[in-house]
Computed example of a mutant assay.
Amino acid sequence: MLDIDVIVSDFDGTLLDDDKHLPEQFPALLDALDRRGIRFIAASGRQYYNIRAQLPGMADRVDYIAENGAMTVQNGEICSVDEIPAADIAAVVDTVRRTPGCYPILCGAQCAYFENEFAEMRHHCELYYERLDRVDDVMEYVTRDRICKIAVFHSHDAEHVSYPALLPFSPRMQVALSGDCWVDVMNASVNKGAALRSLLARLHVSPERCMAFGDYLNDIELLQASGHPYAMDNSHPQLLALFPQRGGHNNREGVVRTICRALEISL
């Protein structure tokens, strides 16, 4: 049996199934982890308030890596918000506005802000943002909130449209492909792995006593920061190549089953 103090899991494509549902056994698993004194961290490109909303009755028992690492929360307290300089935000937004089919969302500590109102984009935004405002000009909110991430939406092919358009901002900024429709742009030092190392340090836990689960390219650093990384069976091919341990399939409660097997937990 593994000696584990912290378990961290990505949300979409990892802990959640393709219909965005938690595993049925997750509340029972969280109870079992609490009894053993094991902390659970939810790590996602989603907004903090949105992740909390997916955990009814459990939200205060979980720590958070939100906005792909740009915001962390422990014991209900915001630990960090990695604010992007206004000039960098302006440069990225200008590029996005000049790239056909791409639209910016500014993600702040209090709310997310978007300009372009059409059904498909609103549907995707409402999946990942609990606090979301439609505004005339997102740049007006750079001084009104602490903007820590610029999410860029493309309806179906972020990997081949928005991602190449934004790559020139790397390495000065972190440019992360976080889904079929999404690219996230943050400060250069921001990623889920850096956020995990920060939370582990606050908890005085070594990486060797941490399990991590992920499925997509924005999870690479998260898995690298853990002593026990698991790539989901449904992962992006690059993750499958980098991490040999498998976390099962997200549509078959893979995270819950893998944890139970590794820690000898019966639910």
Rank of each mutant, 00 (worst) to 15 (best):
G227P: 11
D215C: 06
A119S: 13
R35C: 07
Y163K: 10
R172P: 01
A158R: 02
D17F: 06
L240I: 13
T95P: 01
H236N: 14
L203T: 02
R35L: 10
I147P: 03
R52Y: 06
F26A: 02
S226P: 05
L239T: 13
E24G: 07
Q245E: 15
S206Y: 02
A188G: 05
E67K: 02
H154W: 07
A42H: 05
A176F: 00
K192W: 10
R122E: 15
D19C: 13
G193M: 00
Y113L: 09
L127N: 12
L15E: 01
H249R: 13
A151H: 04
M71P: 00
F213T: 06
R36F: 02
I105Q: 03
D233Q: 13
L106S: 08
A86L: 05
D3V: 05
V256K: 10
P104K: 07
A43G: 14
A151Q: 09
C107D: 12
I105E: 11
Y216D: 04
R98G: 09
A212F: 00
I84C: 04
M211C: 07
L203K: 13
A90T: 12
R202G: 06
F153V: 11
D215Q: 06
A70F: 02
R202M: 09
V255Q: 03
Q47D: 07
H123S: 14
G108E: 09
V138C: 12
R261D: 15
E130T: 09
V93P: 03
I89H: 04
R261N: 15
N218C: 05
D10S: 05
A188N: 08
R146V: 03
S155E: 09
D60P: 01
E130C: 11
C107A: 15
R35A: 13
H154G: 08
F40G: 02
L196P: 03
C125R: 04
